[in-house]
Design a binder for these strands. Structure first.
Lengths: 338, 338
DNA sequence: TTGTAGGCGTTATCAA
DNA sequence: TTGATAACGCCTACAA
């Protein structure tokens, strides 16, 4: 008996079941087009041989992969984790797989990964925010790759988007902060260059500051990458400035967590000595001490919506849409009246 | 002029450059086998057309994808993030790409994703721990897929592994805890079933407990999924038990963070009322208040080593190896003498 | 150094 | 309901 131990192919299954490869293929993809009788026989052979379709061959022949690519700036902190999880779950329910890469906030890496995902035959793409070279959009357009932009609401853009207005959201929080009597405000922002979310958030604070009649020259801002340690460093820098702030507004919860840690180390009482605010409402926010006042983003809803709308786009059952999600201010204990 | 806007193929490039497809292919893959002259001409055509090789076609023809698949239990918390990041960076440097999926700690999902990754032509796989159905290993073996098991050191297993001895490591911490006078110890463990790391850690504590002459009946253990909220709940349950523990040892830092949060909410002072320990030393650990005593795992080194050894396995330049990494106890402020 | 041609494992079209 | 057969886009002996 000469048994082959090589990986079984469609051909092997067909031979084992005594049918043509076409029939086996039908059993796997459109089972209603095959008589129950032969289908049973085929499936038996499939099981017996432990056959798994070759994805690459399938992709080539079908010109369809049922996979979506997603490129997020980082996996290192929790910002995108929840939303992506929901995205992936919803996709799974719709019969799609998800491929994830992270760009480390580097545009050229993102571009490379976009090409890679497209080369792999991704049926659609999920990208974060909109700020990237036009050539990237040209590439996507030329290839006809349905693309969904998330974490930002972009009604004026030609690409589908689902998210919220970072600028307006942060402005609401800033208005609130100022209405509570704070006049010495300082900001720890994410790096604005190349990051429209960070830029929007910072501008939201500036909008409020100016609208309330203050001078931008009196609004200290530190820009630093979204890392907990950087929040700590920035906090110390700001508190050593010429005029101690009464509140420090942070571009996200990670920076805020770092700021609060350093505050404690330096003996500052939050919120009595200085208030701190965040953005995102990651799980950690309510577990910090004191709990963090922040802007709640509906990450899971965003992920679900992105998945559904992107699949609609791919199906052709809908055209470019823009879905705006509501955020809300979560008042906890890190922000106090002045 | 009739310009085609379809996606360019090797054929298009060949025609544009006035060479055969074989030559173009060589330019892209083994450029030393082509004269500089024609190579320049070819590359020019590549750029002009914006050509990107079709990954699936390439994979079929070459039977090689230069991609590694990794399946981790979860992306939701930071446990695997750092190690995976290092894994990916090292891989990139070696000319490989990484595909990540998460199994949500569900074995059947993991099995499905393994098949998916293999079907996609992954040259090798990274899996976490060893506890999974034999059929999975059979499948991998039959297909001849080089596989690296990480987060555990498994010298007795037939698969390559890189990691540390979870059981022995946790035992060292437990010995330390007991030597500091603690006699009322309680444990918040991860779910042990199907998770050899969690099981090892729990057993490490039990080893120490028994070796020190105590009775396992006096060691309260709560098993709960690795989520911050679960750590909080478990803490409260334990503190409401018949005998309040003087120390709560947690299966990882996430559970510990939750426990500490609830402690604060309930008015317990850590470490004076009760000590808390963790495992992993995630970034957050030193930012908690008080800072968390825990077991430091060299995540980045683990990721780098896993990448290098896995690629060696694929190249055939090495055979199954087992690499043990050293962990260390990080004494911070959440653990006090009794 | 370059070109020719066969094959990789599917799906899909067209007949039967 | 089923079976031939032609793509799909690339790599790689083998020849020239």
């Amino acid at each position: 008996m000469t048994t082959s131990f090589s990986i079984p192919t469609l051909d092997d299954v067909a031979r084992a079941a005594g049918v043509s490869t076409a029939t086996v293929s039908r059993c796997l993809n459109a089972e209603q087009k095959v008589s129950k009788d032969t289908r049973d026989r085929v499936m038996e052979a499939v099981d017996a041989l432990g056959y798994t379709p070759n994805f690459n061959a399938r992709a080539m022949a079908a010109k369809r992969t049922y996979t979506i690519g997603a490129i997020i700036p980082t996996m290192e902190n929790a910002i995108f984790a929840r939303g992506l999880q929901a995205f992936q779950e919803t996709l799974h329910g719709l019969g799609y797989n998800l491929l994830v890469s992270s760009s480390a906030y580097r545009p050229e890496l993102e571009a490379e990964q976009i090409r890679g995902l497209v080369a792999r035959g991704a049926d659609g793409l999920l990208l974060i925010g909109y700020e990237r070279e036009q050539s990237v959009y040209d590439y996507l357009g030329k290839r006809g790759i349905p693309t969904m932009l998330a974490w930002s609401y972009l009604p004026d853009r030609p690409h589908a988007s689902v998210g919220f207005d970072n600028r307006a959201s942060m402005r609401v929080l800033a208005d609130r902060v100022i209405s509570m009597g704070h006049r010495r405000v300082a900001v720890i922002s994410g790096i604005v260059d190349g990051n429209d979310r960070a830029e929007g958030r910072l501008n939201g604070i500036k909008d409020s500051w100016v609208a309330n009649g203050f001078d931008l020259a009196d609004l200290p801002v530190i820009e630093t990458p979204y890392e907990i340690e950087n929040g700590a460093t920035a906090f110390e820098t700001l508190m050593n400035g010429t005029q101690k702030p009464s509140v420090i507004m942070c571009g996200n919860d990670v920076l805020a967590a770092g700021a609060m840690t350093r505050a404690k180390e330096l003996g500052y009482d939050i919120p009595n000595d200085v208030s701190v605010t965040g953005f995102d409402d990651i799980e950690l926010a309510k577990h910090l001490h004191p709990s963090l006042t922040t802007v709640h983003v509906p990450h899971r809803e965003m992920g679900r919506t992105a998945a559904r709308e992107l699949v609609n786009l791919i199906d052709g059952s809908s055209t470019t849409v823009h879905r705006q999600l509501n955020v809300s201010i979560i008042m906890r204990n890190s922000l106090a009246q002045v």
